[in-house]
Write a protein that binds this DNA or RNA. Sequence first.
RNA 1: GCUGGAGUUCCAGAGCGGUCAAAUGGGCUGGACUUAAGAUCCAGUGGCUUAGUGCCUUCGCAGGUUCGAAUCCUGCCUCCAGCACCA
Length: 889
Amino acid sequence: MVDFAKIEKKWQRRWYKEKIFDAKPDKKKKKYFMTVPYPYASGPLHIGHGRTYTVADVFVRYKKLTGHNVLFPIAWHVTGTPVLAVAQQIKNKDRKALDQYKYYIGYHESDKSKISKILKSFEEPENVMNYFSKTMINDFKLAGYAMDFSRQFTTTDKDYNKFIEWQFNHLNDKNYLTQGDFPLLYSIEDQNAVGTDDIKDGDTNAVEVSEFTTIKFRFKNEQNKYLVAATLRPETLFGLTNLWINPKEDYVNLKVGNEEWIVSKAAAEKLKYQKLTINAIEKVDVDDLIDKEVIAPITNKKVQVLPASFVDGSVGTGIVYSVPASAPFDFLGLRDLQRAGLYKSIRSVPIIKMDGYSDMPAKELSERNDIQEQTELESINNITKEIYAAEFHKGIMNKNCMDFEGMKVSEAKPIIIQRLLTDDNGFTFYETSRKAVTRANNNVIVAVLSGQWFLHYGNEKWKNDTRNTFKKIEVIPKRFRKLFDNAIDWLDKKPVARKRGLGTKLPFDKQWIIESLSDSTIYMALYTVINTIRENKLKPTQLTLEFWDYIFLGKSTTQKVSKNTGVSTKLLNSMKSEFEYWYPLDQRHTAIGHISNHLSMMIFNHEAIFGPKKAPKKITLNDMLIREGTKMSKSLGNVIPLAKVQDKYFIDLFRAYCIYAAELSSLLDWREQDVQALRSKINQFYELMEKVSKNKPKKKDTTWLESRFHTNLEKAQTHLENDNPRHYFQVMFYDMMNDVHYFIRRNNGSLDGIEKIAKEWITAVSPAIPHIAEELWEKFKGPGFVSTSTWPKFKKNKINKEIEEAEKTIQKTMSDINQILQITNKKSAKTIYIYVIPPELKKYKEAESFLSGIFNTKVQVFASNDENKIDPDNKASKAKFGKPGIYLN
RNA sequence: GCUGGAGUUCCAGAGCGGUCAAAUGGGCUGGACUUAAGAUCCAGUGGCUUAGUGCCUUCGCAGGUUCGAAUCCUGCCUCCAGCACCA
């Protein structure tokens, strides 16, 4: 087997040494600006990332070959919280994290002492991102991407900050930024919002903010004193029989305004963070509450407060209202009390009817599942879920539900919530969807943050402009268009800043840091000038609003801006014209998952900042990569890092597999068996071409071969123009291979003639397998690099349909003969007689010796009207155009 | 649950009202060639047949429209993605 890794390293060295992918504006050439989102630098890249970059790279290389001046830059995304979380875990000596990152570093380092030193340095978040952005460059170079590395930056660089500040000033000027309240996950101990990465098991068992509705039950005979219960199902209020309170939990009395509320102690803590002014908190004796009577809002029903052990003070308000008809816990709680002879007079009240269940589903399912004890938590939770889902989706409110009778549960619920809120009989209480703690074991609660900044994608004008602009953007594969339409419609208020994490501060409210999706919407523009900014060492203080306004929007005059910023007019003009040269973006390629956030926000923000003329022209997408039918994941240990591909396989094999093994719109399954099959195909291609390059050819008729090449070339070209790399590769590699094999066979194994198409063919496969193409290009003495050469010119006059057709009929005849041999169970015939119609005689006569070689026997061709033919079975009469009669002796 | 998307023969994936047992590529099985391996070539890859054919059953499931459906309609099932502060 050829040592492809060696070949690849050789060409990678040369490409990047000679900087053949670094782009400069060139007015004489048509430009092509392609980007893939910059990777997040908190860990190494794997082959899943690789798929996306590879697909883009194939497009890029094709554009380059077709004479475009291509810019394909890259940068590193580090804003946000994940890097912080990584550093924190390393600092905390989290076993899993330490092992994980030790392993990651091992991708690039072999020296053990160095590894632990690097690992130690990860206690500082900056070091994590510096390390990975550095190693990612290597990963990309190992993959042979035609990237311009001269324009890289990270999203915490000072000049990047200035650029983002400029963007947000404009958004603010346009009134696209608003402020308001917002609930989010929060840790009281850390005094901070917490993200998925900060929560223990947050990645595997997601925590969300759920919206409870509290209901205030007024104590009988007391004006302003309430028991406050929290529920996810306020529509069941009509089935109320009693309230539950747990005598073993701590409860407190809160003074809120002129009211007194009783809730659990834990709930009181949480309520402090939910925009509530609490004047005083006093402990209450639970025993005093048991058996008290309270009055429900809406129904005005009087019920008693009963003790229950299943009530958890740390969930909701620690007070639960009881609906034994629908809620299994309530049913069981009441049942057990009544079995003990207590509260005998309480009767369940059915409230919802639905197909497939009785009107007391809690009783029905508890009995069906034979639940004896309130402690059988798992079963009880399961049936609770079942009933909730069934009632919500299928249930109809029954006659006990006052004016809600006949309404679907799903319709009644929001109306009831609204009524409770407007009459001040309840309020919205945010709670975590499960009990959660941070990695440092601090409780996670929900806090309502005031003054949260939002980007208001719901702004009608903005939305409409964006819709209109989107109409002109091409989306490939087409079927994803609709997803964009929906996302653009649906995006409304997007929280845009947070209190922690890395990133750019909101310029007019510096306590906020711009969140990491929102600072990644128009950065492609920065690629066009960042190299100039860096080369000329412009200081952040020079990168003023005026500076960006001039370069990107053409505002003000060169002289003025130059005077105010100290940047020379020459430099200003050169940056301005470079931006105008490259922009708009010609193509954005990324994974499907980004449609509803990143990609849609990119369109919105381009619209807001640059206007419709600078909108990206095309968005192409691909699905994810899985391995042997399973998702790749850390926990399964089946992740293949991009850095290991060259050693384990070779990069061109990976590249070819990525584009050929699945359509863009579907999952790519990395299957070892198929990969190995492709490996031998590529190997074969390489060895064949190597032989051809050493062959001293004799003159050969290559009409057919050239015709096939150009037929395939035209198809391949069309596929690439239509952004279908898979079909391109199938035609240009597989189909062409088959044709070449046939050609060789037809010439009795001689390689003569193949050299005529060799260089063109090598060029045409080079976007997919550039390293191998480069090596072969050298063997065929092509000038310079194949990567910077020219896509073969499609020559229509080389296509000779007649010859191709004639060859096809001979192939068909071969297959007919084979079939007859097969059917008659003969291994061979003594003589094969072929009777063709007179116009086909010449072609078949020429093929006589070829066929005779193939079948290893005598082959005689006659014209069907030949009087001297040998034809014992009168098969000559069967001869038709393109289908001769055949007789086997 | 909501919003989208998808379910075709071993795999990937064409086909989108008749020419469809269903392109193409891959895999697998058998054969030819070869000292052997690889490559190449041939055949098979739903069932039964046949001198280069013909028939039957199939395209998630169940119905419907039609002379005729993988293709159109309805319902259902299953899978995938996104669902917002998270990159």
